[in-house]
């Protein structure tokens, strides 16, 4: 089985980080993984995206053309990627920042006010991880154990507060 995931938003929203978390989860689950970022001027505050593949077979092309899952965190990303989702796939949309409505009926779309939730819970910058929490709940492609281990692996141990915040964000998303 292969899951192709596209994450997109503004630079600074933690798109690349969220992608890394997913890739680490795949690695911890002994799956083949790849993480491919966009790069260039996007790193300086423009739009930013990355694609993650989780697979039970060696990954051929790491370029995601029609994702099984998208996480979109701004209007341009929604417009760019919503129609690329495979029928039957999933879209997780931060509707604090995306006003447009999903009109596709052949995908599972979840609007989560992630940026709002992050602000309400004193988790500035945690909207990306809140959306991952929701992704785990709805798709089941990653276990809660793996996500916690992945976060502990990626965030330096000396930033204990940051680890806690990320775990809290996962839970908020999962329970939304």
């Amino acid at each position: 089985m292969m899951s192709e995931i596209q994450l997109a938003g503004f630079g600074g929203q933690g798109i690349l980080f969220a992608g890394k978390v997913l890739a680490y989860c795949g690695m911890l689950a002994d799956r083949e993984v790849s993480w491919l970022p966009c790069y260039g001027p996007e790193m300086r505050g423009g739009t930013c995206n990355c694609s993650v593949c989780l697979s039970d077979e060696p990954i051929g092309s790491p370029v995601v053309e029609s994702p099984d899952i998208i996480i979109v965190m701004n209007e341009p990303s929604f417009a760019k990627f919503i129609d690329t989702v495979k029928p039957g796939g999933y879209a997780f949309i931060d509707n604090t920042l995306v006003e447009a409505q999903n009109t596709r009926t052949d995908i599972h779309a979840f609007a989560v006010p992630a940026t709002q939730l992050a602000g309400d819970n004193d988790l500035a910058g945690g909207a990306n991880i809140i959306l991952i929490g929701k992704l785990i709940k709805e798709t089941g492609i990653i276990s809660m154990d793996d996500i916690e281990a992945a976060i502990r692996k990626i965030v330096p141990a000396k930033k204990e507060k940051l680890i806690e915040n990320n775990l809290k964000a996962i839970k908020i998303g999962y329970d939304y």
């Binding site: 890739a23 993480w35 491919l36 790069y39 370029v63």
Partner: peptide, 10 residues
């Protein structure tokens, strides 16, 4: 190339 340089894999 830029793809291999930038991508992450185990």
């Amino acid at each position: 190339d830029g793809l291999l340089g930038q991508m992450m894999e185990p």
